[in-house]
Amino acid sequence: MAIDKFVTIQSPCVPVAIENVDTDQIIPARFLKATERKDFDINLFRDWRYDNNDQPIADFPLNNSKYSGSVLVSGKNFGSGSSREHAAWAIYDYGFRVVVSSFFADIFKGNALNNGLLPVQVTPVFLASIFAAIKNDSKAEVEVNLDNQTITLLATGEKESFEINSYKKECLQKGYDDIDYLISIKDKIEAYENK
């Protein structure tokens, strides 16, 4: 099961300007009951997005028509907490292809990459510039170029490069996943077992 290939994105952003967004906020445990990967996007940020009567909370960015696009921008330490891959699925299936933050939790980062969702870690200063640009114009766009490993804030021309290890980069560029790779080295695995 390959993942979707990552192509350069130019898009406005959806800002969730909160720090330490944990996986229980991204998708609360009570929505993890499915046995297939289906409909998790419906419950993305459930408890911030809907009130107790399941009515959309108007000022939450996902409910605000001012904001759109495939880039989610959030505060530092994004994705902390549980290992639930449902968090990455919910974000991806909602339509996001990139999450920008100044810091990511480890397990989330791995899960995102395994699903073709690109975590882009920027400096706190650059993150502040993106938030400021969005405040100024809700349609402010960024360009995320994986080949060059750069993110550009088009409104100001500010540009930063981001890190990704070369193996994961290639997986995203070509749409490969780790399991394909592991299956291809089965001989080595068996040799290890017989050592």
């Binding site: 290992s83 639930r84 891959e85 449902h86 990455a88 397990i107 791995g110 899960n111 395994n114 699903n115 996943d177 780790d178 399991i179 592991l182 299956i183 089965k186 695995i189």
Partner: peptide, 12 residues
């Protein structure tokens, strides 16, 4: 680990 990795361990 995440679910993709659970699949990796099961498979390999």
């Amino acid at each position: 680990i995440g679910t993709s990795e659970v699949e990796m361990v099961l498979a390999t």
